[in-house]
Write a protein that binds this DNA or RNA. Structure first.
Lengths: 141, 141
DNA sequence: TTTTTATAGAAAACAATTATCGAGTAATTT
DNA sequence: AAATTACTCGATAATTGTTTTCTATAAAAA
């Protein structure tokens, strides 16, 4: 993994810096789909000089070299995901968490749209929102 | 239609103003999914005192009374749609236009996600991006 | 090691959106 | 119809997420 990002950065002419490694490592070891501020807050402890601008600039680079995808889950800020397979996301409108959705057949759906619209579909984003099992339980109490 | 928005506004305690009618009429007679600025620009000619703030405030109200839906097609600004049936959208990455996608079966897909995640799904947004037939033709020349 | 080049991060800039507030106007009451 | 009330308009200012600028500094190349 480390090797991967290191050589990927270098191949594209970007420098390998501690900040970039830290940001990517943090992102790839969580499933919380953090936004820039969450990443910043978590890394600030270990990297006291870390700035939000660096997080944004790094995300830009990581997106460019194909290591992260940017999620727009209908909130006011972007979330980031180091899992690059294109999968839907579901956001809980009560507690705000964003989770992955696996085990659904996207391809058939995409094909249907492609044929119906005559568009050459390059990608898609599926966002669901609702109430997670946890919050459902809380609500019923 | 006019009757509908007029009474809807009044029932919810909002006043019926020329600006609100103009904004809603403009939105419901286009398929271009404009953002606030596009709406503002188009109406400024006929309503010289129209301001962007009014467009935003009106959209807030129209959303609240269920007359428009807000689209977040992965751009930097929101787009608005007076068609309230929940349908996917596809954006052309070349010319930027956003079109509706009809004739696809969403329900089965939503059910699949609902059962797989145990979430109580309240809504969803499907965004596709790609190249529209027009731009495909242009590109091949 | 030296030189070159890109980067980090503070601060300022930006753009979309939201809030504030006084004057104006629609709806309601008299 | 006039007066009252409450909501709204729109100029302006504020806010928020994100991007840019600038310069000392760290990483890569020589």
């Amino acid at each position: 993994m480390e090797v991967c990002i290191t050589s990927l950065l270098r191949d594209k002419g970007f420098k390998v810096t501690p900040q970039r490694l830290a940001i990517y490592n943090m992102l790839s070891s969580t499933r919380s789909h953090p936004n820039a501020e969450m990443i910043f807050n978590e890394l600030q402890a270990m990297y006291p000089t870390m700035s939000l601008a660096t997080v944004y600039k790094t995300m830009e680079i990581l997106k460019e070299i194909g290591l992260v995808q940017v999620l727009n889950a209908g909130e006011d800020s972007f979330r980031y995901d180091a899992v690059m397979t294109n999968h839907p996301h579901v956001r809980c409108t009560e507690c705000g968490k964003v989770e992955d959705v696996y085990d659904v057949n996207i391809d058939a759906f995409v094909n249907e749209v492609s044929q119906g619209t005559k568009y050459q579909i390059m990608g898609q984003q599926f966002y669901f929102h609702g109430i997670c099992p946890n919050c459902q339980r809380k609500n019923s109490n």
